[in-house]
Computed example of a mutant assay.
Amino acid sequence: MHQHKRIPLGLVLIFLGLLSGACTVHYVADYNAEVKADILRVAKQVDLFWGKLLATPVDQRQYAKFKDDYIRIETDLRGLLMQNRIRPLNELSTQQSQIALELWEQDMADHKNNEGISDFIAKRHRQDFVRVFVAMAKGEEAKQLDE
């Protein structure tokens, strides 16, 4: 008859403790410096857009003059959304990107339908986008701290 040696329970617990300390469970996506750089790049483009719009006299703010900028920024926001969607465990960042895109699309549609934007609306929307992009950038930075 073949006898098995028993491993002392203390050694098993120590081994499991070391093993569990070496493995970490991530509930969010890993930090991605490229995504953070893209967030800041798009944020600057959006801020520049609102700055240019505000520098334009109110009676000259027809949608057609800003159409190309709207489309370029919409494309960049869609790219940001795609980057976030393809990363596993990245639901919050994906939602933030979706919100930014929806806000942008709504602003674009409103401008097109109204053929202009007041200073009040432009300043408020500029501030709204600053808040959205700050939240997105801080969210990405928080992933770095989790590593």
Rank of each mutant, 00 (worst) to 15 (best):
V46P: 01
S20C: 03
N84T: 07
G51W: 12
Q45D: 06
L81W: 01
V28P: 00
R78S: 09
A43Y: 03
T75L: 07
Q45W: 04
K52T: 10
F66H: 11
A43D: 05
V58L: 11
R61W: 10
K65R: 15
K36G: 02
L80P: 00
E74L: 13
V35E: 00
C23Q: 02
I39G: 01
Y27M: 13
K36F: 02
R72F: 15
G21C: 12
I71M: 14
E74Q: 15
I39P: 02
E74M: 08
D76Q: 15
D59E: 10
K67H: 15
A55T: 09
Y70Q: 12
L16Y: 04
A55P: 05
A22R: 06
R78L: 09
R61G: 13
G51F: 11
Y63E: 15
Q60E: 15
L54Q: 07
K65S: 11
L81Q: 07
K52H: 04
L19D: 13
P57F: 07
E74I: 05
P57S: 09
V25W: 14
D30Y: 04
L92G: 01
V46Y: 02
D59M: 06
D38M: 13
L80H: 00
K36T: 10
P57H: 14
V35C: 00
V28W: 00
R85M: 08
Y70K: 14
L92V: 00
Y31C: 05
